[in-house]
Write a protein that binds this DNA or RNA. Sequence first.
DNA 1: CTGTTTTAGTTGAAGCTTCAACTAAATGAA
DNA 2: TTCATTTAGTTGAAGCTTCAACTAAAACAG
Lengths: 159, 159
Amino acid sequence: MTEPRWLNADERRAWLALLSINTLLPAALDTQLQAAGKLSLFDYNVLAMLSEAEGRFLPMSELAARTSASLSRLSHVVTKLQRRGWVEREAHPGDARVTVAHLTEAGMDTIVSLAPGHVDAVRALMLDAMTDDDVADLARIGEKIVARLDDDHWILRER
Amino acid sequence: MTEPRWLNADERRAWLALLSINTLLPAALDTQLQAAGKLSLFDYNVLAMLSEAEGRFLPMSELAARTSASLSRLSHVVTKLQRRGWVEREAHPGDARVTVAHLTEAGMDTIVSLAPGHVDAVRALMLDAMTDDDVADLARIGEKIVARLDDDHWILRER
DNA sequence: CTGTTTTAGTTGAAGCTTCAACTAAATGAA
DNA sequence: TTCATTTAGTTGAAGCTTCAACTAAAACAG
């Protein structure tokens, strides 16, 4: 039995930084979105993923994959978004097990009005701190980590 | 009024990767810690920060800073850890406003027994996916982002 | 076909986090 | 001093997430 390898200096720095980003960045974006439209970052992402999908609808499973969420979490949130009139649930023609989440016009209007402020916040909170090379490095390294966590994650599909 | 700058390809890749890591990595580490000791990643970090502090105690505010948490969140969690016998609350000698959180022997035993498995999980889930250069890059870039989010964050203090 | 397994999704309860309101002590201003 | 402000922390309620149990349809196996 070998002694467990502890983290070296860079490993520790990388890990602690990621851990901190992990709590601070969503919190800051949540604050911005909460002020702009009384929704969370996760709510926003659900709407954003639907808005980018062809026909502005996706099966719950696919939407869950694109938001890295459990089906249960998504189901609760879609119920909430439905009550706000931003999303509708529809039956799938070919497979009766499938529920399709469909972005409404009101939902589209919401995401369109929120997007600029949200993108500005993403820039202000992280991208503006980085050079172009940093951004490319982070994209490359980040995708490696995502591949490790889920080797057929959807963000890796389009390459 | 200028048109809002949208994200370019690398910016979008970096942002989506970070967003995905953000939900997948804590979830995976939570699962490991839940199985190993019925605690969350946040619980673990509270214990870890105390175990590394001199005297194994810290004021609540300082512990909140080192875990990037709100005082309210920390207060609830310390109450829970206290019920499990891992942490105790003590008065601060010089300032009656301050509550000091102190890691107990049982708490120290817990973190010592959990640490190897947790570090292995951190390696398996992210570090093993990266080269040494990647790790150094991530540390550098990650710290830039942290500085942007909180310019006197504690992880930046020790350099 | 018929029974079994897998896939898709929902639900309610329990636990966690955030938010707002609050207490109390220390600091600062006049 | 005395009053106002800031700092440190706690608390209960509301909302969010996870977990386990469940329904129902599709796919599969014999």
